[in-house]
Amino acid sequence: MTSYLLAIAIQVGILMILTLSLSIQYGMTGLINFGLVAFYALGAYASGLLTVAGWPIAAGIGVAALVGSLASLPLGFIAVRLKAEYLAIVTLGFAELVRLVALNEQWLTRGTTGLGGIPRPFQDQPPIVQAALFLAVVVFLIVVFVLVSRRLTVSPYGRILASIRDNEAAVNAIGKNPSRFKIQIFAIGSAAGAVAGALQAHYIGYVSPDQFVAHVTFMAWMAMILGGTGRVSGALIGAFVIMLFFEGSRFLRDVMPWISEVEMASVRLAAVGLLLILATLYRPQGIVGDYSSR
């Protein structure tokens, strides 16, 4: 039971980091990232490949963050010129592109076979201790991103972010370049997404393209909407509730054993859809935040 709870806690933690990533991007500047999974994948492959090649895991995670933010830059430069909706479509396309590269560049990613043998930290420890230590790492990184988020909002920097949310034209009139702030925030959020991916890779020990489908992105979106955008605590609570719901659904099979695992997967994903619909209909404050007029 303990190992099961630890496993769930780790998954919750990774989803929390993903949700924080969206919460930083959308909550702080209104940038819509429908391609979050792309950064998650980039982080997983970056850290996976480097550590397989012998790099230490910590370095792998660090490089993953760097790769995530660097990959976000070209998108960021485009993002600041686009209407919010177009950015949504562009990021959706970017996620598709990254998945295609993961599938087809066999020399790098081993294609559909996937990249195995990714080192897992604390391997010399007994399994429970190993999982507990891994969870500690996850929690530590959550704390880091929460503190980063706080520093970004409660500071002169955050004053400009709030101004951008309020009236972008007026930010130009006080001599500040809104695009600079947006691109930076997009990069920081993307780094968080990549770190989540790196953690997942080291937890499972294996990455393959089928882990990086669109519903990863929208699980995080749902968590953010449930928790309420623009609040760090909201992202954490939302991720927790979502994971509770999905793990809880596992027990459904104990009650209804005639449902197969494949069918259960369909039910879960249909539920993602249903919850997204219900959230937009009945929990508008979760997504509106400061962006009701956009």
């Binding site: 929208f218 993602v272 859809g273 919850l275 997204l276 959230a279 937009t280 209909l281 997504i287």
Partner: peptide
């Protein structure tokens, strides 16, 4: 944005 997110929900559903 809300309608767009809802349409993603509809798609999954």
């Amino acid at each position: 944005v809300i309608a767009l997110v809802a349409s993603i929900g509809v798609a999954f559903f």
